[in-house]
């Protein structure tokens, strides 16, 4: 491999690195502890994070696309990095549907990559994502939007422990007259799962789940399950290193690379009843973190 490592580990935050890479019109993959940002000609083309459901999961677990159609597209076009184009050309997905879902996943993952804005670990020039070009976004827009989302959550309920801790319902709090979306999310709060796991179960974006969960927290209906445990303590813990992170970062079935499918548990999307945590979830999370770490080497 002739990949030249442009940047080794520095203390420069990922947002500053991204701005510099955008100025240089760089193409490649920038890894942080929370995920990977893919750039093409200085624009963000895709973002992946263990804290946000992957595009494939959002599409297949919701029933928008049959899993066979997804894997077929990866088989046929993964090596050429044209999976997105293949999905549309083969008639599996409308162009607009792919763009909407892709942008939803991109900004969702970007929020978590930039939420704590840790140092960028590595930039690998020339590395492209197998999805290929769907709709690229200027780096500026991604940075601005991630900042805006952080402020939006803070305005709703300024307690970030809700974002990562296992969540429990508060007894005696009524649940009548909640908007449909919020009550669907409340029904998944079981004292065990975190926001990211609830999002994965419902095939929803994690940020959009967080908005509802913070509103529920503000209404006194949901709270971190065990606020005294140090692992679930307030936001000063650096995200992925927290002991609770492996369970929080589960995205079952996300393909790490074309041709290397991870066995995924049965999709739970659409199930109105709370489902137990999949027994193999910690391993999946561990594997994804390992993958990110290896790619960052």
């Amino acid at each position: 491999m002739i990949t030249q490592i442009l940047t080794s580990r520095t203390d420069e935050p990922a947002s500053a690195q991204l701005a510099t890479l955008a100025e240089r019109s760089a193409s490649g993959a920038l890894s942080t502890e929370a995920g990977i940002v893919y750039l093409a000609a200085g624009h963000v083309v895709h973002v992946e994070s263990a804290h946000a459901p992957a595009l494939g999961d959002l599409l297949t677990h919701s029933g928008a696309l049959a899993p066979d159609g997804w894997w077929e597209a990866i088989d046929r076009a993964g090596r050429r990095c044209r999976v997105g184009r293949q999905l549309v050309d083969s008639g599996h997905l409308a162009a607009g549907a792919l763009e909407l879902c892709h942008l939803g996943a991109l900004f969702d993952a970007a929020y978590f990559v930039l939420a704590h804005d840790g140092p960028a670990l590595r930039f690998r020039p020339g590395v492209a994502h197998w999805l290929g070009a769907v709709r690229s976004v200027p780096v500026d827009t991604v940075l601005r939007e991630s900042r805006r989302r952080r402020e939006l959550l803070h305005r709703i309920w300024p307690e970030p422990a809700v974002d990562r801790a296992p969540l429990a319902r508060i007894e005696d709090a009524g649940s009548a007259d909640l908007p449909a979306r919020r009550s669907r999310i409340l029904a998944q709060v079981d004292g065990v799962r975190t926001a990211a796991q609830i999002a994965t179960t419902l095939a929803c974006r994690t940020f959009h789940t967080l908005v509802e969960l913070r509103r529920l927290a503000a209404a006194g209906m949901v709270a971190p399950a065990d606020p005294v445990a140090p692992a679930a303590g307030p936001a000063d813990s650096v995200a992925p290193a927290a002991p609770s992170a492996p369970a929080a970062s589960v995205v079952p079935g996300a393909p790490p690379a074309p041709g290397a499918p991870v066995m995924s548990p049965a999709p739970a999307a659409g199930s109105p009843v709370p489902v137990p945590v999949f027994p193999d979830e910690p391993e999946t999370a561990l594997l994804r973190r390992l993958l990110h770490a290896l790619e960052a080497l």
Binding site: L58, L59, S62, G63, A64, A97, L100, C101, G104, L202, A203, C204, R205, H208
Partner: peptide, 10 residues
């Protein structure tokens, strides 16, 4: 409002 089968709120 746009109706989608996947999670989108657009």
């Amino acid at each position: 409002f746009v109706t989608t089968t996947f999670d989108s709120t657009v």
